[in-house]
Each structure stands twice: as C-alpha cells, then as structure tokens.
Nucleic acid binder design. Structure first.
Lengths: 138, 138
DNA sequence: TAGGTTTACGCAATAGAGTTGCAAAAATGA
DNA sequence: TCATTTTTGCAACTCTATTGCGTAAACCTA
C-alpha cells in the first residue's frame, strides 16, 4: 500500500482531516489506479456505512482529491485528480473514455483541446468519448 | 408553432407513432430552440403525467430525435439532435456549454475535434464546457 | 498532553429521479 | 371497420443520494 505518510500528506495538503475511512478510500484509489463507481467502493468497503462513503467522496471532490465524471447513466464515477488540483484551484480538463461493452471509464492522459468561444468564460472542459475499449475490441 | 405537417413528418421519419403528447413535446423543443431539463418540461406540461413525459423523452432519445446531455448534477437535460440522426444511426459529437451562474446548457454549433486513440473504437464524443455564459458575463 | 472546539462517523429516516406493471385508450395497417 | 400493436395514465416501487442528530474522533492551543 502507498505509504501511510504519503497518504497523510495528500490529505493534509488538501485541508482534509485524517481519519481511518479517508485513508482507506484514498489508498484504494492510489492502489487501483483506475476510476471507481460508487458500487465499486461500496463493494470494497462492505462493512463501512454507505453515508460515510458518500460524504468521503463529496469531501474529496470538493477539496480537489477526486473528480466526479459526468455520465448519462446516472451512476457517479470518480477518478483521482491531477496533482495540480487543490482545495482552492480545482481546474479540470480531463478526457475520459467509457466503454459501452464493459462499462469501465478510463482517464486518458491527453488534455482536452482548448476551445475558445467569443463572449464566454470557459473554466472547465470535460470530453467524454464512448465506444469500445482496447480490451473489448480484441 | 411549427407546422403540424412538419412535426408529423419528423416523427414518422424517426419511426415514432404520432400522438398528442409527442407532438406537444416536439413542438416545444422546436419552438424554444434550446436544451431543456426534465424540470422545464414538467413545468410546461403540468397537466401531463410524469411517467408519460419520461417515456416520451426516452423514445425520442432512442429514435434520434433528442440527445441526452451528460451532466454531473444528476439532472438529465435534452437537446434536439442534428438532422443527420435517425433511429438507426445516432452518432453524436456535440459540444455543450453549461453556465455555472444561470445553469443553462447550450448546444454549440462546432463539432468536437476528432480524437483518435490507438486500439480503441470511438463512436461518440461529448465535450462539456463549463464557465460563465455570454449573458451572465455582461 | 490536557481540555475545549470543531469536524467526521454511524444510524435511521427522508428526498428525489426514474422505472415497472397493468388495464384502458389511442394509433396503425389491412 | 376490425384486429393488432403501441401508448397513456395511475399506483406502486426501486435506487441513488442526502439530512438530522447524538456520539466519537481529530485538531488546536496553551
């Protein structure tokens, strides 16, 4: 598991209190290195309370540890933010790929191409691609 | 209102039965020329049944009349599809702008820049921009 | 490191979006 | 017009997520 001191540092730098639950959840994200639906987390933390899990995810999202990935399925999915996010500056230009076969959502490394619209202030950009992922194509 | 014959033609070409509800809803979208949340529609069609409204929107979405705009708020928003969409071929590369001030979602005319990922089949692309819209900036 | 303050946790209850089943009504096609 | 298929409207329900509140844990300061 990612070193306890490291996880603690991440929580502190995002102005979050250090609790057992938060350590567990953050460690899980760091270890799995993939996006996670609420279901995934509920399954991993069976013994934990659902409400606490929701509150943990909300706190992480508000403080720039995780980002919520918009999805028309109505199931929230979460991914780790870039290192540059913190509780004040929480800018996203993530690109995500959702596989229609397996349902997994991946964070892609590339940034979203910059789009300028006259008269508008663009603060955040989310590109969601859908189709069939590498694993399911094969 | 958009001519009855025109609305009828649109429904027919998308293989949808012509009913009073569908005519009303489609006419509303054509007249307003903007995206609409379920709430907007519920308000416009107060006397109508919620379930029917949901089913109408689902039918329109499945047959390529409307597209559902993913949004992390958990509130579905719908917009008219391009003319090229039909019940078989329902490809989207819409670009949307959501204003953090007024909450409105606009469909932008430009298409999403094409993104290729080696090993993946990309079938749909949704770019969601967030910030402050022209009206709220002023 | 003790004591006071703030924040998180866990439980129960609640809110709200969206769906399902079913019988009656309407649309379609011959 | 008649038979078939689809839609509508009502009630009940499912499921995700939130709120209230008392207790427990974390934090801060002296």
């Amino acid at each position: 598991m990612a070193r306890y001191s490291e996880i603690k540092k991440i929580l502190k730098s995002h102005k979050l209190r250090i609790t057992d639950r938060r350590i567990d959840v953050l460690e899980f994200f760091l270890r799995e290195k993939r996006t996670m639906s609420f279901k995934d987390l509920e399954e991993e933390f069976k013994d934990s309370d659902r409400v606490t899990l929701y509150r943990t995810l909300n706190a992480f999202t508000e403080h720039g540890v995780l980002h919520k990935i918009p999805d028309d399925s109505g199931f929230a999915t979460y991914g780790l933010c870039h290192d540059t996010c913190d509780s004040e500056d929480h800018y996203h230009d993530h690109m995500h790929f959702k596989c229609n076969e397996c349902g997994n959502i991946e964070c892609l490394e590339e940034n979203v191409p910059v789009v300028e619209i006259p008269g508008y202030q663009v603060k955040e950009a989310n590109l969601i691609l859908k189709g069939t992922c590498r694993t399911c194509v094969a």
